[in-house]
């Protein structure tokens, strides 16, 4: 397990994502309403750059025609064929147990030892490669 500092928090505002290269892997780091998630930038379907897709909500329906739309911004849709993935888990919506994208733990850590005269960013984003 290795830790990789990828950005300052302010670099990825809520609703935005940053695609970074870590140890040869392309990974998207997403800020979803202040929570950070990271998934591999490759769709398990046909290898499209998943992290270029839109982040959307989750459409569900108890009954035909009665659609509810929740968890806005938490679902990533592949830009190629529209497959949906839960950013929090990497699990697909249509088959959460068998179709997943690799997801990585993300931590936000305080800057502690920096002693620059003026500190602009106080936190940075760390992706943990597992």
């Amino acid at each position: 397990m290795t830790r990789h500092v990828v950005a300052h928090v302010a670099d990825i505002p809520p609703g935005e994502r940053l695609i970074v290269e870590i140890a040869g892997r392309s990974i998207g780091v997403f800020n979803v309403n202040g929570r950070f998630f990271a998934v591999k930038n490759s769709c398990p379907h046909q290898g499209g750059q998943l992290c270029l897709g839109r982040t959307v909500g989750l459409a569900t329906a108890e009954r035909p025609g009665e659609i509810t739309y929740t968890r806005e911004g938490e679902i990533l849709r592949c830009p190629w064929h529209g497959w949906e993935f839960d950013l929090a888990t990497g699990r697909s919506v249509f088959d959460p147990n068998r179709t997943r994208v690799k997801s990585y733990p993300v931590e936000v850590e305080e800057l502690q030892a920096e002693t620059y005269p003026v500190e602009i960013e106080r936190e940075r984003v760390v992706v943990v490669l597992t």
Partner: peptide
């Protein structure tokens, strides 16, 4: 098609 388009028919 359902895998990509299920949001139209989430039931």
């Amino acid at each position: 098609n359902w895998k990509g388009l299920r949001t139209e028919c989430p039931w």
